[in-house]
Structures are given as structure tokens and as C-alpha cells.
Write a protein that binds this DNA or RNA. Structure first.
Lengths: 350, 350
DNA sequence: ACCCCTTATAGTCAAATGGATTATAATTGG
DNA sequence: CCAATTATAATCCATTTGACTATAAGGGGT
């Protein structure tokens, strides 16, 4: 396998193995890690390169988009260098240089170790730190070799706004069933079916839009996607129809989508993607684009209003095609107020 | 300031500044970041050192504990080296070597750039990757120079199980009010009061146990805590009574507590901290220890049962002091089933 | 044996929340 | 003026959730 399996849920999966009594990394751990804290300065071999990678999001015409560079499907990135004052400022610098796009909201996603790069003289370790960034397309200053592409070109099974995507039932389901059935023992087969059903909402289960990363990892594990630059055998006839990305960038995007979909439910981050003033329907359409599913209109409005996230500007928008809609703006004060909504513990009050 | 302000919410705070029209990192960004992707291999200056730091958690006698090493209050850590097969295996190696403790569940917390270390010949960049790990004390093999310390020695204001901690109202509140009032302009004063009230539940607001990191950052920003090794002026007479840690380890712990408190509400991670079989009250006490607040007993049992997280072992425990309690064990199958509980979007079904 | 204390377990009830639906208002375009 | 389209308000009902009460089952002392 040309790529390493990793991701946010790797620890979780590993843990499942542990409970099942199977050997884990922990059991087979390399014992040769020597040296005390004092020794650190003596080693030069410990030095590694650090890459910063950005998953930049904007919603254009109700389509959630990722910022890419070059002809290939590549995320903006660059090495963390001495000139950078911080990781974030390094990331901003690279993105602005490569795309001409200034970033607003930034959030760290995940740090992972790349597979060893064999340098000219010695082994070279590399680490990638990925980030999620939110902006608006208009902020782009006459872009260079970069462009906005819809998420759903890379993840066609993730868009449920117009009903269940055909690819899900026509392609993914049979192939995942096939993959599950290909396992050696019955327990693994059942476990694979279980995982696929939960992640994709098969067998009458509900679709959960937050499981984007689990779904990608499942598809990847089943060998149904192929990324550019990986040297996989070409014997496998047909993969799931979707755009691939360079290296493991598609996994980073999946991580970012999952994070963002989860986050819009408890923090007011959507407004980073909105213009200064907007109608409630525009806001709803943006959330729907991110979540990949439709939202009940009256209930959405009730939710927004009772949380007092927005305030009226006093103006109305007339290009709605029907009755003019009130324009709203985000109440920035909520960033200081926000008590974060939901608890799930039955706490004892008083 | 001897330490850099950073953390999970740094992006959020930064963003608030942006909206308030203040200059930000983005605005003052260094423009000298040069070089294309092809140049990477040519630079040696870009190499950095990578440290792995572990926040290891166990709950001993209803007290949530952190694993520390040495006499000082230090988290297990060590450099990421060539011998390590992955970041996680490197972390496991260091923790086992320094504490003799094997790790089970591991989850990445945050990656940050340390302040520059001035090496003997040239500037040296360093990066720290922090992790959250869950275990049980019993797994410890006759420990070396390490020990378990209660979280609440470092964060006495976080334990609300036995009522509001005195330090909150007697020390923190007046000092935070003083800090808020010390701001130059009225807007900043109001914003500071607002933030403090939200984070600590002042002025009749509810206590939100998930805001551990925000609270620590606020206290830090107000100059009310001092960490070991920082060269702060000694003129400030009295700080908030609490144990400090080496470097920014206390911030890492705060990040981990916040993450864990949020996570137990939607993923069944508590069971990593439980023995094989346990009573429902033991489970409840463990959750209470982590959350730092009491839970309504009947409702907690209802929650556990309706989610089918556990199954009866058939045995009962008699050392409860009253009626014997049924013993339960975790249903590991839920790890494959779990559809993750809560949505907060008013989705349109059908 | 009995009482009393402790904890376990089951059940009830009201309030709040959340999903779905219907009704009414204000525009544009023909 | 009518039809189509969108905005906005209001209502209904099932489910969830917080708070509380009642009963069961043990141990320890007298």
C-alpha cells in the first residue's frame, strides 16, 4: 500500500482492535527508543521537515468549494520556515502567495507523519500540519493559478440535498458489500458490514452527515479510491467515480468537511462564509451546502432567532424572486456571549 | 510575555479581533516568505525538532488524575525520532520508557510551534505535538519516577462536584473584575467582563464545564497564573492558588480536559477509564470526576440504558455499603454501531 | 428479630425541545 | 388582476429531558 492509513479515528480503530484481543502497535512497539531528555540537543538525526497544508473553504452559489492550485488537484501548502512567526502566519503566507487569497478564520485540523522520504544522503522525516480555513470567494484578488472546486466532485456520495446520490446505492453499496464479504473470517465480515451500514446509512439506518471521514476511510480501506501519485496496481478495473487529489489531500479535505459539519452545529462559524448582510434563506442554503442535506425552513429560522445570532439591518433584498426578504447581519457580540449550546449529560442542577 | 499565547481557540480569538477592526496577524503578516514548492529540498534551514507530549488520564478513587514525571510537574514527553514508526508509536515509546505505563486510547490534541530556541550556531525551530491518552492506574507496572496527581490541584476552580469552589468567588472573581477594569477603553473593559462572565458563569450565568481551556486562557491573559521556567516579574504579589507546571504543560492539560469533557458526551470513551466490570454508580462517579459536576442519578441510568452502552455481567457487587449493585460491562459492539447521538440542525426528514 | 442506615432500581410528571404542517403576507411577471 | 414565488408567523404533537417519588435489597448495631 503506497499510503499509510491514518486520520482522526485511527486511535479509535486501534482501540477497537485492542479490545478484541488482537495485537496492536502498543504490543509490538519498538523498544529501541533510547536517550533521555538531556540528549536531545546532541542528535541531529531527529530533525524533520514540517509542511503546512490548507483546506480553504468558501461557498459560491450554494456550492461548497475548496481552493486548489495548479492544474492538478492540490491544496495550497508549503514548508514551515524560519521566517514564519508562527504556524498560522506561515500558512497564511503560503496560501496568499500561491493563491492571492487572504485568510480569515483558521483552525488546526490534524498533524501526521508522512512516510519516510529517502533523501540523497540520509533518511528524512516529514510532518504535515493541516488546517481548515474559511473565507469568501469575493476576497480573492484576481487569482493566479488557482481555482474553486466543489467538494462534491471529490465526494459525490456526500451530497444529499437532492435526494440520495445514485452513486451511493448503485456503486458504493454493492462494492462495499463485496469488500465485506471478501474478509477471511465471519467476525470480520460482520464487522465490516456493520461499519459500512453505520457510516453510509444502509439497511434502513439514517444518514449521518458528520461521518465524512469515516466514510472516506472505509472507501479507502476497501480500495475503492485511488489518489494521484500512488503506485497502485492497475488491475482493479473500475473505482468509484470521483475526482482524486494529490497525495493524501483528499483525506485532509474529508477531515475538514467532517470537522466543519460538526462545528456549525455548536459554534457560529457559518458567518465566516457569508457576506456582510444576507437573508435567512441565503444563510440556510449555505448551511445546507455544507451539511449536504436540506433543512426545514421554519425550524431553521426559529433556531437562528432564538439563539439571537443575527440582527436586522433594516434593509430588504429584492432579488429573491418573491416577497422581499429582510436582510440580517451577524451579531459579533455573540462570540463573547456564546455559552455553547448543548450538553448531553443529565446534570444535577441546584 | 515569556510565553506565546496559543491554543485551540486562538483562531477564534484572532477572528474576533479581525471583526472588531483591529490589526491581526494576517494584516501584519511577514511577506518575506519566498520560494516555491520545488525549492524545499534545497533548504536545510527549514528543519525543525518535533516533541511529542502526552496528557495521560486515569481516574483513581473518583479523582481524575494526570500522569507526571520527575519531581517537577512535567508531562511525559520526548523527541520524535527516526526509529519511531509513527507519531503515536513514538509517543507510546516515550511514555512507557519514562513511566512504565502502556497506553490504550490515544487522541491527538494540538500542535504548536515553540518559541525559538537559540542553538549554539543557528536558530532552531521546535514543534510540539500534544496527545490525550486514557488508561487505568492498575495497568502501571511498578512505576519509576512518576506519579498520579489530581487535575484539580492545577485547576482548583474546575471542580464543582462539592459546590462552587471557594477560590472561584473569593479569588478569581475579584481579580478578574480588577483585570477587566484595568483595560484602557470602555469597549475592552466590557468585552473582558463579558468573556469572564461567560467562561466562569458569573452574574447568574450557568457554569459550563466544557470551557476549561477558555478559562485557563483568560486567567493566563489576566496574569493570574505563573508557570515554572517563565521569567515573569516577581512584583505581582499573589497569584491564584494552584499548582503550576513546566513550560506550557498546564495549557496542554487544560486543552485535554476540555476535549475529554466534551467528548464523553457523544462518544463512549469513559469506558477506557473503567475496569472490566463496574456498577452504574461507579460509572457515574467516574463521569462526574471528569466533568467536575454532579449528575442526576436516575436520569444518568436511563441515558446509559437507552443507549445500550452496557450489558449485565450477571454478577453483583457487595462492597457498595447498601443493596448489592448489578455489575455491567461495556458492549464493545457499540463502537461499530454508534451513529453518534446529537444533531443540532433542524434537518428535513423524508 | 428488629430497626435503621445505605445504596440500588423502577416509575411518574411536567416542562422544554424539536420536527412537521398550515396559514398568511408581500412582491414580481404576465 | 391573477398566478407564481418567496417571506414570515403560528400551531400541533411527539419526544426528550430535568426533577422527583417510591420501592427493593443488602449490612450493622441493639
Amino acid at each position: 500500500m503506497a499510503m499509510q492509513l491514518r486520520g482522526v479515528d485511527a486511535a479509535f480503530r486501534l482501540n477497537r482492535l485492542r479490545h478484541a484481543g488482537l495485537p496492536t502497535t502498543f504490543a509490538t512497539m519498538d523498544k529501541q527508543a533510547k536517550g533521555t531528555r538531556k540528549d536531545r540537543a546532541a542528535f541531529k538525526a531527529d530533525e524533520v521537515k514540517v509542511d503546512l497544508i490548507a483546506f480553504v473553504v468558501a461557498v459560491n452559489d450554494n456550492e461548497p468549494c475548496v481552493l486548489t492550485i495548479g492544474q492538478a488537484d492540490t491544496l495550497p501548502s508549503g514548508p514551515f520556515a524560519l521566517e514564519h512567526r508562527s504556524l498560522q502566519s506561515g500558512l497564511r503566507g503560503w496560501v496568499e502567495q500561491q493563491t492571492g487569497h487572504p485568510l480569515g478564520y483558521i483552525e488546526q485540523l490534524y498533524t501526521f507523519a508522512d512516510r519516510d522520504r529517502i533523501g540523497s544522503e540520509r533518511r528524512q522525516r516529514a510532518i504535515s500540519i493541516s488546517y481548515l480555513a474559511l473565507t469568501r470567494k469575493e476576497q480573492a484578488a484576481a487569482s493566479r493559478k488557482c481555482g474553486w472546486r466543489s467538494w462534491y466532485e471529490y465526494f459525490p456520495w456526500e451530497d444529499h440535498r437532492f435526494g440520495t446520490p445514485p452513486v451511493l446505492l448503485d456503486v458504493l453499496r454493492p462494492r462495499l458489500i463485496e469488500w465485506a464479504g471478501g474478509a477471511a473470517d465471519a467476525a470480520t465480515r460482520r464487522e465490516r458490514r456493520q461499519r459500512a451500514a453505520t457510516a453510509f446509512g444502509f439497511d434502513g439506518r439514517h444518514w449521518n452527515e458528520d461521518l465524512t471521514l469515516q466514510r472516506y476511510e472505509l472507501i479507502y480501506e476497501a480500495g475503492l479510491v485511488q489518489e494521484a501519485g500512488s503506485a497502485r496496481d492497475a488491475t482493479r478495473p473500475s473505482l468509484v467515480p470521483s475526482k482524486s487529489m494529490v497525495a493524501d489531500h483528499r483525506r485532509i479535505v474529508a477531515t475538514g468537511i467532517a470537522r466543519l459539519r460538526a462545528k456549525i452545529k455548536y459554534r457560529p462559524v457559518v458567518f465566516e462564509l457569508m457576506p456582510q448582510s444576507f437573508t435567512l434563506l441565503q444563510l440556510q442554503r449555505t448551511v445546507e451546502a455544507l451539511a449536504g442535506r436540506l433543512i426545514n425552513k421554519p425550524n431553521f429560522r426559529r433556531l437562528i432567532e432564538q439563539q439571537e445570532l443575527v440582527e436586522e439591518t433594516g434593509e430588504t433584498s429584492v432579488d429573491t424572486g418573491g416577497r422581499p426578504a429582510k436582510l440580517y447581519r451577524f451579531r459579533h457580540a455573540v462570540l463573547d456571549e456564546t455559552p455553547i449550546v448543548g450538553t448531553k449529560l443529565p446534570v444535577a442542577r441546584g
